[in-house]
Design a protein around this nucleic acid. Sequence first.
RNA 1: GCAGACGUCGCAUAGCCUGGUAUUGCGCCGGAUUUGAAAUCCGGUGUCCCUUGGACUCGGGAGUUCGAAUCUCUCCGUCUGCGCCA
Length: 426
Amino acid sequence: MLDIQIFRDDPDRIRADFSKRGLDESIIDEVLRLDGRWREVRFEVDQFRKARNSAARMISEAKKKGDDEEVKLILSQVSSLGSKIEDLEADAQRLVSERDAIRLQIPNLLHEDVPIGESDQKNVEISRHGNSPDFDFQPKTHNELIEQNHWVDLSRGSKITGSRQYFLMGDLARLDMALQQYSADFLINRGYTLVQPPLMMNRRAYEGVTDLSDFENVMYGVEPDGYYLIATSEHPLTAMRMDEVIEQSELPIKMVGVSPCFRREVGAHGMSDRGIWRVHQFTKVEQVIICKPEDSWDHHVELLENAKELWDSLGLHYRVVDICTGDMGTVASRKYDLEAWLPGAKEFKEVVSCSNCTDYQANRLKMRFRKSGGNEAVHTLNSTAVATSRALVAILEQYQASDGSVTVPDVLVPAMGGKRALAPNQ
RNA sequence: GCAGACGUCGCAUAGCCUGGUAUUGCGCCGGAUUUGAAAUCCGGUGUCCCUUGGACUCGGGAGUUCGAAUCUCUCCGUCUGCGCCA
């Protein structure tokens, strides 16, 4: 959510962003109109309250002196104030909640260097890393590999739950755990605090960190308690300091979250999403930073570098992409993706997403840091380290041999109990 | 699940019974003092509206009242004990 002060001081800045994103500007004026009305009503109700407070003080004085006549006189003068205040209060409440309902839908301000474009087709490739594996055979898709080696049981997964659910089995399950262990250690060694979060959040906390449409399209609800299963540990780790004033000495807060992630994936279909590329549940190792505003762009680079060095160490070929306006989403001000090369599918596909959300989440969460002259909203950033299911797909496709066997990346061998290749299941 | 206690400014704490300007300490920020630091002293330290100034804020919401941290109802949360339990 954007600070209301930006609407009042510099609405053209928001308009400029809207035109980059191709959005209808009229709701900006609607926010300004409601805000103006609210401030008028607020002023009016404050005047009535002032009158009521001074009357209350005079009654108190008169009672102390035992002057009952005076008390009656004042009471007769102020008897109608209560209902007037109540009416105006209701108006103010209505105006401000209408204003903020619109404000919640307005996306974050973009970093000035974000490339302009209407869809992911206009994302800009920044760099390529690692070497594309050189096969002297036709590489298989991960889908063919998991089927041949019986590493994933999708049909029984859907039998006991529903579509896109799966059992991960044998050495591929072990590789999943190895990836978690290795990636978490990688970031712990860089000063990040390991955090295992709650896997469910209440509505208020969740509204602080995500686009409202995600409640229909992304998150699973847990009834009858009214909780939501987390779509990523970014959400609980970021919301963790909701309603708090953080001491400067605590900043920056750097965390590495490890958790299962649950996603409804409404509307996902088709060949490109077969196998375990797009599933309802996966495990993710996530980086989260809460910091002072002036430091956030440095930390954004830091998160990206962490991700790149982690993926370099896994020996995987990937590229870095600068996300354009049309692919940005609501919350981030700037976003880089890592896209891994999938030789079977013959394309680069998203495996890491690295965002600076500036003060957008912090404003919703009322998450500030102590500062003389007025506390200020912190900045929040997040980046995937490894989403295990997608990293598994990249490893399967890039580390495959002609017979369908798969080598273990060197750095994961210790966590695989010394195994250098994944054994097939019977 | 049962029983009890509790929720006050960043933290801690008084006020609640008996309704009438939210107390004090710590932390933090600024200043004085100092070669520097500590200690000490002074001031500031939540949110909103604004022109001086004002309004709001005691877990959330509702009610009673001229007036609610204080009384009533309700919801949420925390702690303790018992029970159950990986």
